[in-house]
Amino acid sequence: MTEAASILLTFLREAWMALAGVFLAFALLAGMAQLLRVGSAGMLGSNLWVWQSVSALLSILVLGLFAFLGIPQVVRALQDSLPGAGGCGPISELGAFASGLIGALAALRMLKAAFASALSASIGGAGAFAGALVESAEALFGMLLAAAAIPLAAWFLGAC
């Protein structure tokens, strides 16, 4: 069980690093595109377009900071609240395996949601932006529910 968890977590860690790298590259490209838009809109005298681009640029920056500074802290806090070993024997191993996997999947899901929201912010899709933030909140509440469910399951299956 421990080896399986280790393999899965290594895979998910690599996925996290890849997603963070793509997020960074995309944020920079989106920033450059918005600046190009600001330049051309300013030349045409389109004030609204300029303000839209400036706000999109700022929102991409804020989402990037949230993704890189906020999400790891949230995930660490929630992982600390997940009970790793709610029993003894196979139940304990299963609990540790489940809590590690739930934390990793929720972290990846939140990063993916932040990436999707940055994508929506750069192209001005408010609906997709809201959907991505809802997905992030879902991952958060999923972890909170798991924090409550794991001890209950351990108790039901017979904790030591």
Binding site: L9, L12, R13, W16, M17, A20, G21, L24, A27, L28, G64, L65, F68, L69, I71, P72, Q73, V75, R76, Q79, G100, G103, A104, A107
Partner: peptide, 13 residues
């Protein structure tokens, strides 16, 4: 970009 690259987090799990 450099700032965000420095903030790029290690996996928190």
């Amino acid at each position: 970009g450099e700032m965000l690259k420095n903030f790029q987090p290690q996996p928190p799990f």
